[in-house]
Design a protein around this nucleic acid. Structure first.
Length: 483
RNA sequence: GGCCCCAUCGUCUAGCGGUUAGGACGCUGGCCUCUCACGCCGGUAACGCGGGUUCGAGUCCCGCUGGGGUCACCA
């Protein structure tokens, strides 16, 4: 088998959609698994909607996800340029060849008259199927006439191909019309541009969403007319909104950018998306290396699925929790931007940062949640939840807070184990239960009624800060609810 | 409407002729426990319908129904 060359060819018309990410991921996995090349191509022939900003966002998003490309914009390669509007001469050359070979022809029918005919037919019969009538099919318009180039679809026969996911698909040529290859201004339409690029870039397998399945027969017709080898095709089932419609902004976050901002991990995003239309027995959570190892087209499903934000969060949570998926150092490092975004001042030493984040790890489903959960570690004074203070920092607990602090002061060392032992000794001596002081201490130390374990917090906060916060809590408790 | 595709718990899915139809998310009962989580144990819930083929169909075939994609000088 020739070396695998796959590609991802987004249009720079907006953010990178998570459906696009999945397509990119499957291609990337295949390239990495087979040792082939992953090519990135920008399909910007829709000059109305394409923008350089969008292209930059897409590149940046792919980089964040770690879906690195071997050839393409900013990476170079021997098959460039990798931006379609820079390849116009190539399309023209291929189109001329098809015209010379009688496989395509110049058509001078204007868009206006065709649109009018289409609408007229629709007015007569709403269910009618409008197709280009073939007006120019057997004419030979001059090259300098104002024209588009149309493909001459064979009247007989059918296109058959074996999809790597769906199996054999057969479409009669009679179902197709003479579609446009090149616009009046010489810019190619999707099917033509894609085929010319895929063939000149040596793409061996085209994997894309099922919404493109309908483009495959005309594309194969073009390959054949060109006498070019037809690549393999693999279509992926669609990712739909919970309602069953096409997934769009109306259904919540659909751009990678949003998930990045919400603090999802790239691996979590990818892991959720890969399990959409692909499975490996009962396994749910994979590292990237494991995915590359396990991925195959044969184990891809065929049924469309519905996007589930809760499951997405849960999958991301797994990637947040497991140290086998990311080290404590990586975890802390990745949390930094979210901590900084809250205006927090981070400690000079990474040790405290790592230790602090470690205590919120299990309870954080995203880095945004981790930053929220660890917030109190990085402020001079914790932000007090008034409802919690009102409920727990009451006069009756003031003395216990003092005793609690004294027990801590008496500990032989300021670490989790030692502090816990010291406090338990005190509790036992006084015949108290930790419940009688825990919530008050928690509010004093963290400002909230829910936090990591008390002794973990004390250890990370350190002796001075802990005692100062407990004292302030005691003062407030003694003063009662009037604060 | 034409062409194409699909069909297992609410959702993502395992299953590739013989299973008590499994896992995950969600929901839920309990355990653990200084709070919230995590973790652990348990529960809830599915083969769209009708014909075949077969000793035997979630698994194979046909029809129906349902759903989706696409019908541009968008991609």
């Amino acid at each position: 088998m020739a070396d695998v060359r796959v590609r991802f060819a987004p249009s720079p018309t907006g953010y990178l959609h998570i459906g696009g990410v999945r397509t990119a991921l499957f291609n990337w996995l295949w390239a990495r698994k087979t040792g082939g090349k992953f090519v990135l191509r920008i399909e910007d022939t829709d000059q109305e909607r394409s923008t350089p900003e969008s292209k930059a966002i897409i590149l940046e998003s792919l980089r964040w996800l770690g879906l690195t490309w071997d050839e393409g914009p900013e990476a170079g390669g021997d098959h460039g340029p990798y931006v379609q509007t820079e390849r116009l001469a190539i399309y023209k050359q291929f189109a001329e060849r098809l015209i010379a070979d009688g496989k395509a022809y110049r058509c001078t029918c204007s868009k206006e008259e065709l649109d009018a005919a289409r609408e007229a037919l629709k007015a007569r019969d709403p269910k009618a199927n409008f197709r280009y009538p073939g007006t120019c099919r057997d004419k030979s318009h001059a090259a300098d006439s104002r024209h588009v180039v149309r493909f001459k679809v064979p009247t007989e026969g059918a296109v058959t191909y074996v999809d790597k996911v769906f199996g054999e698909v057969r479409t009669p040529n009679g179902a197709q019309q003479d579609f446009v290859l090149l616009r009046t201004d010489g810019v190619p339409l999707y099917n033509f541009g894609a085929v010319v690029d895929d063939t000149t870039m040596g793409i061996t397998l085209v994997a894309r969403g099922r919404d493109h399945m309908v483009n495959t027969p005309p594309q194969i017709l073009i390959y054949e007319a060109l006498g070019a080898p037809v690549p393999e095709f693999a279509h992926l089932p669609m990712m739909l909104a919970p309602s069953g419609e096409k997934l769009s902004k109306r259904h919540g976050a659909v751009s990678v950018t949003e998930y990045r901002e919400k603090g999802y991990t790239p691996e979590g995003v990818l892991n959720y998306l890969v399990r959409f239309g692909w499975s490996c027995g009962d396994r749910e959570i994979f590292s990237m290396a494991e995915l590359i190892e396990a991925f195959t087209w044969e184990t891809c499903g065929r049924g469309d699925g519905k996007f589930d934000a809760k499951k997405f969060l849960a999958v991301n949570h797994e990637h947040m929790k497991q140290e086998s998926l990311q080290t404590a150092q990586t975890y802390a490092e990745r949390s930094k931007p979210f901590l900084l975004a809250r205006g927090l001042v981070l400690p000079a030493s990474d040790d405290m940062l790592v230790a602090a984040l470690k205590t919120v790890r299990d309870r954080s489903r995203t880095f945004l949640e981790a930053a929220e959960g660890a917030d109190f570690y990085f402020r001079a004074e914790p932000v007090i939840d008034e409802a919690a203070a009102l409920k727990f920092l009451v006069p009756a607990v003031a003395d216990k807070l003092t005793a609690f602090a004294n027990a801590l002061t008496g500990a032989s060392a300021w670490d989790e184990k030692t502090l816990e032992a010291a406090v338990h000794a005190w509790l036992e001596a006084e015949n108290l239960h930790i419940k009688e002081v825990a919530q008050a201490a928690r509010v004093a130390l963290t400002g909230r009624s829910a936090s990591p374990g008390l002794f973990e917090v004390l250890a990370v906060l350190g002796r001075d800060v802990s005692l100062a916060r407990l004292e302030r809590g005691r003062e407030r408790a003694a003063a009662g609810s009037v604060s």
